[in-house]
Amino acid sequence: MSSGTDHHQQIDSRSPEVRTEALEDLLVEKGIVDRSRVDALIDRFENDLGPMVGARLVAKAWISSEFRERLLADADEVLATEDIQGAEMEHIEVKANEPGVHNVVVCTLCSCYPWALLGLPPNWYKSPEYRARVVREPRKVLSEMGLSLDAETEVRVWDSSSETRFLVLPEQPEGTGHLGLEELAHLVTRDSMIGVTKAQAP
């Protein structure tokens, strides 16, 4: 036995880290995958796509009722007009919160999510417990996440699929009618567009 043997036992060839490195290298060697393209894609998802895209849409809908109606009626058409990157990949529906109605989004089977508007989903959205429980007991889950809804408010849970991704249009916080687009967009958090919180007060 060589003196280095003890180091070998630390790593499992079945670990996802090792599998990922092995499969990337093999695909690169075969000319199927290009490392610089992979780098560029990662950079795009880490830096260019994100909730700020969805937040601007929400802020616009708060400012203009005409825009709001268009967004609710045919979000795909609005996204195409707004030239939102990646939006062609997914069919998106926007669900508006209003007095007495609260919407929340889940993907019960995996992790479908409106990437073009929110970037990649947070860990809790992908977790088995959120995916199972928000359907079964949405009020309880929302209250654990800090959102208490009164008993009269109807909670609508939207299950995403490959065909349809959902974005929640949160209610505009009171007393923000004088704010401009950028200031309003800052109040629109990612979680408020998934429907697990409300938009922030300024």
Binding site: V33, R37, V38, I42, E46
Partner: peptide, 20 residues
Amino acid sequence: VFEAPWQSRAFGVTADLVES
């Protein structure tokens, strides 16, 4: 978005395969 570099590689490789 990613908690470890291998997660971003796994995602990026998949996205590249889809794009191509």
